[in-house]
Simulated assay, not measured.
Amino acid sequence: MDMTTDQMMRGVYLLVLLVLVGSALLARRVPWRGAMGMVLAWVAIFAGVLILFSFRNELGFVANRVRNEVAGKPDQKVSGQSLRIAPGADGHYWVEAQINGTTARFLIDSGATVTALSEETAMAAGLNIDRLAPPMMMNTANGTITAQRSSIAMLTLGPISASDLPVAVSASFGGVNVIGMNLLSRLSSWRVENGEMILTP
């Protein structure tokens, strides 16, 4: 439907509404002043509904953005073969991924050598943690910590899939999961463009 036709339909709807309201008022013999007030009230209600209907897509997008921010859900979308990720409220890039089918939230950190999971996330995903192997020593913003080695059979981020991905697991990560360079290096490209991070498998 083009813009002219859309405007004509709105005009028809408004005319029909006015005729219906006017007919109802005449049938009830409502005083002129009261009738005008009721007509104006109905016109305002109709205009409000019309505005909401006309901008339903834009309002839906805003509502989803607000809901994602409140819920802490990353703002990501698939565009062609790429995954586009908007920065979070903290300025970092967060993404929602599936670990062997289990959903988890990750911080994308190109400064991290290896992908890292909190112990809670690893346990929820059913990963096997090699507790007999010597622990890994990792430098983090909170200092040096120890981590255990594990592996993800399949990690999926939108159109991106990585199999047999080595990961570090530690309770010292504070519940934060990190996607590091051992995953980013498997992609054909990753970059930041117009504020968005774009990952291409």
Rank of each mutant, 00 (worst) to 15 (best):
Ala97Lys: 03
Pro134Ser: 09
Asn194Pro: 00
Ala44Asp: 08
Ile85Cys: 03
Ala133Tyr: 07
Gln7Glu: 08
Ser170Phe: 04
Ser110Lys: 02
Leu52Ser: 05
Met8Phe: 13
Leu50Ile: 02
Val192Thr: 08
Val12Lys: 03
Arg105Asn: 09
Asn64Ile: 11
Phe61Glu: 01
Arg56Gly: 00
Ala104Trp: 05
Ile160Ala: 07
Met197Asn: 02
Leu50Arg: 08
Gly72Pro: 08
Lys77Gly: 00
Arg67Lys: 15
Ala125Asp: 01
Ala89Ile: 12
Ala44Cys: 08
Thr4Val: 12
Asp6Lys: 14
Arg65Gly: 01
Asp130Ala: 04
Pro134Gln: 12
Asp2Ile: 02
Leu15Thr: 00
Ala162Trp: 05
Val114Tyr: 00
Arg191Ala: 05
Thr146Pro: 01
Glu119Ser: 07
Ala27Cys: 02
Ile160Pro: 03
Val178Ser: 04
Gly180Arg: 10
Pro87Gln: 14
Asp90Ile: 07
Ile51Lys: 06
Ser110Glu: 13
Gly34Phe: 15
Gly195Pro: 06
Ala147Met: 14
Ile198Cys: 04
Arg29Ser: 11
Ser151Gln: 14
Leu183Asn: 07
Ser54Asn: 09
Glu58Gln: 15
Val169Trp: 14
Leu157Ile: 07
Ala104Cys: 03
Glu196Lys: 12
Gly91Thr: 11
Met154Pro: 00
Val16Pro: 02
Leu15Asp: 01
Arg191Asp: 04
Asp75Ile: 06
Ala86Lys: 14
Ser170Tyr: 06
Leu165Gly: 10
Ala24Cys: 09
Gly88Thr: 04
Gln81Trp: 01
Ser23Lys: 07
Arg10His: 08
Arg186Thr: 05
Gly101Arg: 04
Ser118Gln: 10
Ala112Thr: 03
Ser188Ile: 06
Ala104Met: 04
Asn57Thr: 06
Val176Lys: 05
Val192Phe: 15
Thr4Ile: 07
Leu40Ala: 15
Gly37Lys: 15
Val167Gly: 01
Thr5Asp: 12
Gly91Leu: 14
Ser79Met: 12
Pro201Gln: 12
Gln81Ala: 15
Arg186Phe: 06
Leu107Ser: 02
Thr144Leu: 14
Gly158Asn: 09
Asp90Glu: 09
Ala133Leu: 09
Val70Thr: 06
Leu20Thr: 05
Ile198His: 03
Leu187Pro: 00
Phe46Val: 04
Thr113Met: 07
Gly11Leu: 11
Leu132Ala: 05
Asp90Met: 07
Glu120Arg: 05
Val12Thr: 02
Arg84Tyr: 13
Gly195Gln: 12
Gly126Arg: 13
Arg67Gly: 02
Phe106Leu: 01
Arg67Ile: 04
Gly22Asn: 12
Ser163Val: 09
Met3Gly: 00
Ala125Leu: 08
Gly180Asp: 14
Asn128His: 07
Val70Phe: 15
Gln98Tyr: 07
Pro135His: 08
Gln148Val: 00
Leu50Trp: 10
Asn64Arg: 11
Pro31Val: 11
Thr144Lys: 02
